[in-house]
Write a protein that binds this DNA or RNA. Structure first.
Lengths: 242, 242
DNA sequence: CGGACTGTTGATTCGAATCAAAACCGGTGG
DNA sequence: CCACCGGTTTTGATTCGAATCAACAGTCCG
């Protein structure tokens, strides 16, 4: 099972990075402590000083901040193979929460070990750095999304992004994918009220752009959805040469 | 003058990182090509593949994206000592624009040279990585700001952030600092119309929180402004131990 | 002096929040 | 197997913050 955990990481890294055989072996040699969490559990909380990073092997996770009046703003949605708190390697205090959305299989890797790997394999270090930079790029697009796009294209953009990212790791079948978020979760992602999320989803359905059945999304017309969202996948840097 | 350019970088890096004498010497030995730009000039454009990074030695710069309908969303405001396009070291295609706001003194450093420095001085590499992670953290807070805070606290938060960051590099005198943005620029930062920015600034003045005189901001009551903005500087990671 | 930004003001519109209440599950236990 | 419960989803009515539209005043600069 330990091998499986590292495997999801390798799959994800290989999407955006050139890894050679030695890199892969070095990653597979990592000591990964498996931990299974239920839905809606905190992995690391704002203000903590973790000494390990968390590899998300299965399930979905959120990074989020909570404002003084109790509103939650989701900052990013994480999918299998990602290390959502990789930044903790160099930023000692967590400035946000990391929590599961669905039941998750997690793998914890000590900072010490990751630092050693980075020293010994500069190519892997570069790949990790690049992953954090892609993260950053996704945040930038997220800013544009919440600051500028009206509710309908805003939601369309999120769906287009999740579809593209899930497809890169093989978690879609022809426009369909599971995205087990409640409408309230979508609201927290997009800065919209639950009521409005509901109306926006109805609109997307009435336009025959998507269907949703119990967290199973089906994008009926990828091109039109992307057009509506003005979605351009460049910012995801899915190709190592981009 | 070349020395001066690297010096601004060292000053800035030293705020958030532990650098030893050899690190400093190595950075000072970098070949930096100076270039002076006027206000509102593009440094690197969306879609380009730069082969150098740009050190901002003097002046203010914006990173921004432009939406299909021509609206500009500013993603970050950059101040002297920063390398706003450091991510281009690992993300080959620019996914946004980088442009001057005021006249700027820039120093260009070839990617090749930075990569060599990173290989030879892992501690400097870690500092650069950390700088990009702080960037990321600032984006996260920016998301919360534009997605959740009403216009007045939103503006207050931006002012509190700029005050804190400028203070760290010695560019404030007791609550006062130059921030040469037009109200239209503020609108592009905050996702607000120019008209509303104007009204928000009036409100902050009427509350005796700030005064503004020709781009010279004076924060009259730092505590109250931060309270209003629910500003907590942790996310800036200004201390190397945070 | 004139022109072009930049800042200011007022009137109106509009998108999304809020409030309130139903309807719709999926699971639990009697 | 059905009644019930909590969490979701849906619907409708109303309010509110910020955009938009339209002028107008300042200020800088050639």
């Amino acid at each position: 099972m330990l091998q499986n955990l590292a495997t999801s990481l390798i799959t994800k890294l290989a999407v955006s990075n050139h890894l050679d055989g030695d890199d892969v072996r070095a990653i597979q040699a990592l000591q990964v402590r498996q931990r299974n969490l239920g839905p809606r559990e905190t992995i690391v909380a704002d203000g903590e000083r973790p000494d390990a990073c968390c590899l998300l092997a299965e399930g979905f996770a959120f990074r989020s901040k909570t404002t003084a009046n109790g509103e939650r703003q989701v900052l990013s949605v994480h999918i299998p193979g990602e290390i959502p708190d990789l930044q903790s390697l160099h930023l000692k205090i967590m400035d946000h929460d990391l929590a599961t959305v669905t039941p998750c299989v997690l793998g914890f890797i000590d900072h010490e070990q990751l630092k050693k790997l980075n020293r010994e394999r500069p190519n892997v270090a570069a790949a990790f750095w690049r992953e954090t930079l892609i993260d950053s790029s996704i945040f930038r697009e997220w800013i544009v999304n919440v600051a500028r796009r009206p509710a309908v294209p805003r939601m369309a953009h999120l769906l287009a992004e999740m579809h593209t990212r899930l497809r890169a790791i093989g978690l879609t079948r022809d426009g369909q994918f599971g995205l087990p978020l409640t409408q309230s979760d979508f609201g927290d992602c997009l800065g919209l009220s639950t009521v409005h999320v509901n109306r926006v989803l109805q609109h997307l359905r009435s336009e025959e752009l998507i269907t949703v059945k119990r967290s199973e999304f089906h994008i009926l017309d990828v091109r039109r959805l992307k057009e509506l969202a003005e979605f351009d996948a460049t910012y995801l840097h899915l190709d190592p040469d981009i």
